[in-house]
């Protein structure tokens, strides 16, 4: 089973043009995160994760891609604040033969007690675009990209929850933009007890994107 260290791009023909007026279309940042997971796939597999959680799963392609590669011996969970995105995530999973349990909630609000200390892989491709604060969540699509000041306002709300969610060996994968100040993100996470690695960096159009990986600092 370990001979394949590639992650297949999932099918997402279930997503309709009407859906795309309300949810984030799988785009370069989604694929960057999938590529980063592919880089770590061997390690993730070896750790035998039992719970993977994607926050703000949108179309669901990222979690579906990871789940297809890891197989059914793991619980796949997703959250999104947009009910339509929740439905599409579930359908994308189904189309690819993956069961994703999806909850409509703000970040991890309704799942954080249940999943306390249990999440082995946490994924977040946040709304990272620098916008005026009042643009955040103005409509469905704004939820997908508007990040407020420095593009940090939404992701900054998740950071304090990561420590309690992750299992001792758990890893947190985050997509960030240069304007989000990745160094400062790493400093913030260090205060919560995390070490960091920059897995991938890529320029896509005007966006300088990277995928950061955080894990508990080993004593």
């Amino acid at each position: 089973m370990d001979n394949c260290e590639k992650i297949k791009t999932p099918l997402f023909s279930n997503i309709t043009s009407e859906d795309l007026e309300h949810i984030y279309e799988p785009y370069e940042d989604s694929f960057l995160l999938i590529d980063a997971l592919e880089k770590d796939l061997h390690m993730i597999r070896e750790s035998q994760p039992s719970v993977c959680l994607e926050v703000g799963s949108g179309s669901g392609v990222v979690l579906t891609a990871l789940a297809s590669a890891l197989g059914p011996r793991c619980q796949y969970r997703a959250t999104d604040i947009n009910p339509r995105a929740c439905r599409v995530t579930r359908e994308t999973g189904k189309l690819n033969g993956v069961k994703i349990e999806t909850t409509c909630t703000d970040l991890v609000s309704a799942v954080q007690d249940e999943l306390k200390g249990k999440v082995d892989v946490l994924l977040f491709n946040p709304p990272y675009v620098v916008t005026p604060s009042d643009e955040i969540g103005r409509g469905d699509l704004e939820h997908t990209w508007a990040g407020g000041e420095r593009g940090r306002e939404v992701m900054d709300r998740l950071f304090p929850c990561v420590d309690s969610l992750l299992s001792p060996q758990g890893l947190f994968y985050l997509v960030a933009l240069k304007e989000n100040d990745p160094d400062d993100i790493c400093e913030t996470m260090a205060k919560f007890g995390f070490s960091n690695t920059t897995l991938l960096a890529r320029q896509t159009g005007p966006e300088k994107l990277c995928v950061l990986r955080f894990g508990h600092k080993q004593e």
Binding site: I81, P83, C86, R87, R90, T102, T103, C104, T105, D106, S109, A110
Partner: peptide, 9 residues
Amino acid sequence: SNGIPNMLL
């Protein structure tokens, strides 16, 4: 609905 709990407040 459709298997998805809506926990939004």
